[in-house]
Amino acid sequence: MLELIVISTLNGVLYGMLLFLMASGLTVIFSMLGVLNFAHASFYMLGAFFGFQISRWVGFWPALLIAPLLAGAIGAAVERYGLRRVHKNGHVAELLFTFGLAFAIEEIVQIIWGKSPVDFRVPPLLDFPAFTIFSTNYPAFKMFMLLVSVAIFLGLLLALKKTRIGLIVQAALTHPHMVGHLGHNVGRIFMLVFGVGTALAAVAGVIAGPALVTQSNMAGLLGPILFVVVVVGGLGSLPGAFIASLLIGLLQTFAVSMNASLAGLLGPLSPDLAQSWLSDIWNVTIAQIAPIMPYLLLVLVLIFRPMGLLGTRDT
């Protein structure tokens, strides 16, 4: 039992940190531009595929640097030449633009790399068990993923709190017009934030690609959960996104390890219910509904605390 708790905690934290890498960019972009970027998870996918391709040519380590830069540059270009033009036509147009972009990126990736998973391997340097707890190995690469995400979280927090550009970004989060009136180039800040946000998603892609699967539907699998993180954490709140990511990561991982069902809980009280038309709901275990837990959380948060855990504005 203890073993399961320790391993599940590790797995949950790791999954949560991966979510955070992506959600951090998304939440900042969301609160600045007021637009939910549907294509955000696509940059995660681009990161993974760029990482795969570049690691084929020059190795994993350069790829870890080059792929996010490349994806970030594309992200910045999308903001500068795409979103900014569409912006004139209002939020709905922007929303549709990012929606279309997500499909376009997926198609392009399919054309270039095909629809089956590509063979993106863990670099040999990290291909060993880092440690063994209760006879379960924990891969070194997953440890590395954890370290990278923590480092990025700390770096991001420092940059936002301690640097001048961080101050302007923070100000633009809550009072974008005021920042503009004070003479700052809000457009450039938007572009920068968009670029950095997408680059962070790409970092997540490069480190998650070898550990999970690198294929053209990976954006679709993770995208919806990101929106949950952003809403639960609170709009524009980095610590909020951090807490929400960990919460969802742990929630999902622990739910999988639980076998409790209504039948197990209440079964002895009324055994005949198990035979009725209710039997499907009656026998479903928590493990089976694990994938929908984050969405349940989303619904609850929207009803009871619409500004999210640490947010200040209503979503």
């Binding site: 073993e3 399961l4 391993i7 797995n11 550990a211 999970l212 699998l221 999902q252 999988v256 390890s257």
Partner: peptide
Amino acid sequence: PLLKITDFAPYVAKIKA
């Protein structure tokens, strides 16, 4: 869930336990 899981680590931990 069918063809939706990208990381089976939580399930494997459960099998192990």
